[in-house]
Amino acid sequence: MSGTPPIVIYPPSPTGGRRVRVGDEVLGLAMSLRDVTEFLRRAGMNDLEDLDVAVSGMIEWRGGGPDVWAAE
């Protein structure tokens, strides 16, 4: 993932889901780790698995890690 723009997963929204951004582009609203993985695959990061996404140092998880999907 060398040269990949910053990847940010925002805190869960009050209505559910987390916004996924790569660089300046918002890829969508993920409802699960699997959704994040799929968004990143569609953005060209084809060799990713859910575990890669969960532990990647390239991803900034705001408002909780990959196991947090509901607003508190």
Results as ranks from 00 to 15, higher is better:
Met1Phe: 12
Ser2Val: 12
Gly3Val: 09
Gly3His: 07
Gly3Asn: 11
Thr4Phe: 11
Pro6Glu: 13
Pro6Gln: 11
Pro6Met: 10
Ile7Met: 01
Val8Asp: 07
Val8His: 00
Ile9Tyr: 00
Ile9Gly: 03
Pro12His: 04
Pro12Tyr: 03
Pro12Lys: 04
Pro12Ile: 05
Ser13Ala: 15
Ser13His: 15
Pro14Asn: 12
Thr15Tyr: 15
Thr15Ser: 15
Thr15Arg: 15
Thr15Leu: 15
Thr15Lys: 15
Gly16Ser: 00
Gly16Leu: 02
Gly16Arg: 03
Gly17Trp: 06
Gly17Asp: 08
Arg18Lys: 11
Arg18Ser: 09
Arg19Val: 09
Arg19Ile: 07
Arg19Asn: 03
Val20Asn: 06
Val20Gly: 00
Arg21Pro: 04
Val22His: 07
Gly23Cys: 08
Gly23Lys: 08
Asp24Asn: 14
Glu25Pro: 08
Glu25Val: 09
Glu25Lys: 03
Glu25Cys: 05
Val26Thr: 14
Leu27Phe: 08
Leu29Ala: 02
Leu29Val: 12
Ala30His: 09
Ala30Gly: 01
Met31Ile: 12
Ser32Pro: 06
Leu33Ile: 00
Leu33Gly: 02
Arg34Leu: 04
Arg34Lys: 13
Asp35Leu: 04
Asp35Tyr: 01
Val36Asp: 04
Thr37Pro: 05
Glu38Ala: 13
Glu38Pro: 01
Phe39Cys: 07
Phe39Arg: 09
Leu40Pro: 01
Arg41Cys: 10
Ala43His: 08
Ala43Asn: 06
Ala43Asp: 05
Ala43Glu: 06
Gly44Pro: 01
Met45Phe: 15
Met45Thr: 04
Asn46Phe: 13
Asn46Gly: 11
Asn46Tyr: 10
Asp47Phe: 12
Leu48Met: 11
Glu49Leu: 11
Glu49Gly: 11
Asp50Ile: 07
Leu51Glu: 13
Leu51Asn: 06
Leu51Ala: 11
Asp52Tyr: 09
Val53Cys: 03
Ala54His: 04
Val55Pro: 04
Gly57Leu: 03
Gly57Asn: 08
Met58Thr: 01
Met58Gly: 01
Ile59Asp: 03
Trp61Arg: 03
Trp61Tyr: 13
Arg62Met: 09
Gly63Met: 06
Gly64Arg: 06
Gly64Ala: 13
Gly64Cys: 07
Gly64His: 08
Gly64Leu: 08
Gly65Arg: 10
Gly65Pro: 05
Asp67Leu: 14
Asp67Asn: 14
Val68Asp: 02
Trp69Ile: 08
Trp69Ser: 04
Ala70Met: 14
Ala70Glu: 15
Ala71Cys: 11
Ala71Gly: 05
Glu72Phe: 07
Glu72Val: 10
